[in-house]
Simulated scan of single mutants.
Amino acid sequence: MLVGITGGIGSGKTTVAKLFAKFENVVIYFADQEAKQLMNTSSIIKEKIIANFSSEAYINDELNRKFLSNIVFNNKEKLHLLNSIVHPEVFKHLQDFREENADKDYILYENAILFENGSDKLCDKIITVTAPVDVRIQRVVDRDKVTKEEVMSRINNQWTDMKKILQSNYVIHNILLSDTENQVSKIHNKLT
């Protein structure tokens, strides 16, 4: 079973996903992490990014994340273009991961833009992680050392929590860690 877990930037979906890792026979696929790795290792992705965004997209054969972020988070068409380059390769990688882990109780598929890129259609169940916007902004400012305006730009490129919640099987309100751990345990029990 493939269980999608999503949430807006700063909601804590990665932290929540890691809480599921404590359960036996559960594996986690972190889409963003795998996408970043593929953007550095896949010749298919590299060639397409350079062709569409210039050779400045890579420095010393490593993705120039700041350069690319400045382009795509201020231009929805460019963001869509980048996603159309990266996501097909991530989907192929996910399929391989699913086959390798077919014996698990379930695979947790952590993806910030699960609905936005159509990955929700791959999932048997979906969990959305939420947190108040001011909390999310502060988390990202602290974590990424960016401005509030930069965080809001990213938030504005994602679906609203309510839109995600309406299409989810479960919702985790991630504010206090102890409460979040209880919610994770309850969902895991339902899934197994």
Rank of each mutant, 00 (worst) to 15 (best):
L94T: 11
D103G: 07
V184W: 05
Y106C: 05
L63R: 04
T130N: 01
H188L: 01
Y58Q: 14
F91A: 11
Q167E: 15
I137D: 08
K148A: 14
F115N: 02
V129G: 09
N70V: 13
M39V: 05
F97G: 10
N169C: 07
Y58I: 04
R98T: 12
M1L: 10
V135M: 02
F73K: 00
F23I: 06
I45A: 10
D120Q: 00
M162I: 03
D105P: 07
V141P: 00
G10H: 09
F97Y: 08
E34N: 04
K66S: 04
R65I: 02
Q95I: 07
L94Q: 08
R98G: 06
A102T: 08
M39D: 09
V26H: 00
S42I: 09
I165V: 13
K145P: 01
I137Y: 05
V135Y: 11
D134V: 08
I49E: 12
V133L: 14
Q167S: 13
E100Y: 00
K92T: 05
E99L: 01
D120E: 14
K148P: 12
S42E: 08
F23V: 10
F73E: 12
A51V: 12
H93R: 12
I113P: 00
V27P: 01
I44R: 10
V27Q: 09
N40Q: 13
I155V: 09
K46Y: 03
L94N: 02
I175C: 00
E149R: 00
F67P: 07
K163L: 12
A102L: 04
Q37S: 11
